[in-house]
Simulated assay, not measured.
Amino acid sequence: MNKKYEIFANELLKWNKTHKFTNYTTKEEIFAQIEDSLFPLEYIKNAKTAADVGTGAGFPGLVLAIALPQTKWYLIEPLKKRYSFLNYIKILLDLNNVEIIPKRVEKSDIGKADLITSRAVMKTDDFLNLVNPFLDKNGTILLYKGSNALEELGGINAKIINKKNRNYVFIKAKQWEK
């Protein structure tokens, strides 16, 4: 695994002791989350700009930003402790392709993104309405969803890839009625 992921995992374990960002207490658990974040990489590798909404402790946005250094990433995280952690990791790993936005997405000014990602932030239809102003007309939304992904989609046209307990939901801007 990339050395940057090793550093990220070590730092997350340290910060978790004080701030409890996640329930992960071992490197193995964090590496499993890194692998989960990276699984859809082949489908998104051509994005020039990307925004991860509700980045939290770095899943999936920070992990994807490490893997895609040619992509400009906006990691949107309004909670100060998490923002501070993400900023620390950005500096530590010299991630020049990352900008951390310490606001809610609707109060940000990131412009239009080719790719918008999110993991467990809110129901799909609410999320689509929230990020609509920030999605490029040819862009893609990638949602990391659990078992209720199909229910949440309703009639929205999406590609779903299932792996274990995860549904990776891809929604193209032009396939979604705005």
Rank of each mutant, 00 (worst) to 15 (best):
D109A: 12
K159Y: 05
D114V: 12
Y88E: 15
A51L: 08
Q70G: 08
Y88M: 15
P133L: 11
I89D: 10
F59Y: 10
K48Q: 14
L135W: 03
L62T: 05
I76A: 07
E177P: 10
L93Q: 00
A149E: 00
K178M: 10
T71V: 10
D114N: 13
Y74M: 07
K48D: 06
L75G: 01
Y144E: 04
E177K: 13
L86K: 03
A47E: 02
L64M: 09
I66Y: 05
L86E: 06
A120I: 09
K174T: 14
T140L: 15
E77C: 08
G58A: 04
G139R: 11
N138W: 10
T55D: 09
L142A: 10
I161A: 08
E152V: 07
G111A: 07
K123T: 07
L68G: 03
P69L: 08
G139D: 11
L93F: 03
N165T: 12
I171E: 00
R104K: 15
M122R: 14
Y74E: 01
T49K: 04
D52L: 06
I160N: 02
A65D: 03
S108K: 04
R119I: 08
P133T: 07
I171P: 00
L150K: 14
I171D: 00
M122F: 09
T55C: 13
Y144T: 05
E152N: 02
L62N: 03
T124Q: 03
N138V: 11
I89P: 09
N165H: 12
K80L: 10
M122W: 08
K163L: 12
F170Q: 07
P78T: 08
I76Q: 06
K90E: 06
A57Q: 02
S108P: 00
F127R: 05
R166Y: 09
V121P: 02
K112S: 05
E177F: 10
Q175T: 10
I110L: 03
L153Y: 01
P40C: 07
L115Q: 05
S84L: 15
